[in-house]
């Protein structure tokens, strides 16, 4: 069974463009790259997949469940448990330490994850030494690792990443991509990256190009 499957997805902004997306699906332990230049609707698509926005037309199934059948708290809970999202820019709760920030994920989705599990995750991402630091004291690259750790801590079956590499230099970009891949394999999940970063083009076999944009 596919972890994620979309059919006829369309989104129309009330005072903006109509976005039409190709249908696709992703299996366990697979990677999918969605490429598109700026303004082609990558972020919008990612939000539709995460259930943060409802499509105007079409549907999204995650783990066989139609996202549109859920609403309110149930949707928030489902997202929390099954989908890990790494956003274009990393945002954290400023008042909390690194470890407390990643522990927010299991807390808000009612998952049982121990502090030592969280520490293991930080260790895997090579930022265990920063666990008691405030996130604002970290470098951009380190912040991105924390964001990845937070997205993965709940053992999600779907990992969504929005431009995870565009702010990084070649070396760091490669690192982050490898990290995401390793963790995806470790969790037996599906990894979906949306980006305009052409450096990733040759790294991922499964690719979709976004072009469609009607105004």
């Amino acid at each position: 069974m596919a972890i994620i499957q979309t059919t006829n997805l369309q989104y129309t902004f009330s005072k903006g463009p109509q976005l039409i997306f190709p249908s696709f699906q992703a299996e366990e332990n697979s990677e999918l790259l969605i490429l598109g230049s700026s303004g082609t609707g990558k972020t919008t698509l990612l939000h539709l997949l995460a259930g943060l926005r409802k499509p105007t037309v079409g549907e999204v199934k995650v783990n066989g469940l139609l996202l549109s059948s859920l609403s309110g708290a149930a949707l928030d809970c489902f997202r929390g448990k099954n989908i890990g999202v790494v956003f274009q820019t990393s945002h954290f709760v400023q008042s909390l330490s690194v470890i407390d920030n990643i522990l927010l994920a299991p807390y808000f989705s009612n998952n049982k994850v121990s502090k030592s599990d969280a520490e293991k995750m930080l260790d895997r991402l090579n930022i265990l030494s920063k666990k008691n630091k405030k996130t604002s004291t970290l470098s951009v690259g380190e912040q991105q690792r924390v964001a990845i750790a937070r997205a993965l801590l709940n053992n999600p079956s779907l990992i969504l990443a929005d431009e995870p590499t565009s702010a990084l230099d070649d070396e760091n970009a490669k690192d982050v991509l490898n990290l995401l891949r390793e963790q995806t394999h470790a969790l037996n999940a599906a990894l979906l990256i949306v980006t305009h970063d052409n450096r990733l083009k040759d790294e991922v076999k499964q690719r979709i190009e976004l072009t469609a944009l009607k105004s």
Binding site: A50, G72, D76, G80, K81, V85, T89, F92, A105, F108
Partner: peptide, 18 residues
Amino acid sequence: ERQYELAILRTLGGRRIQ
């Protein structure tokens, strides 16, 4: 200033009421 971190909490499974 904090709208992003609040939005993140929702993404992590936090409910509106929380």
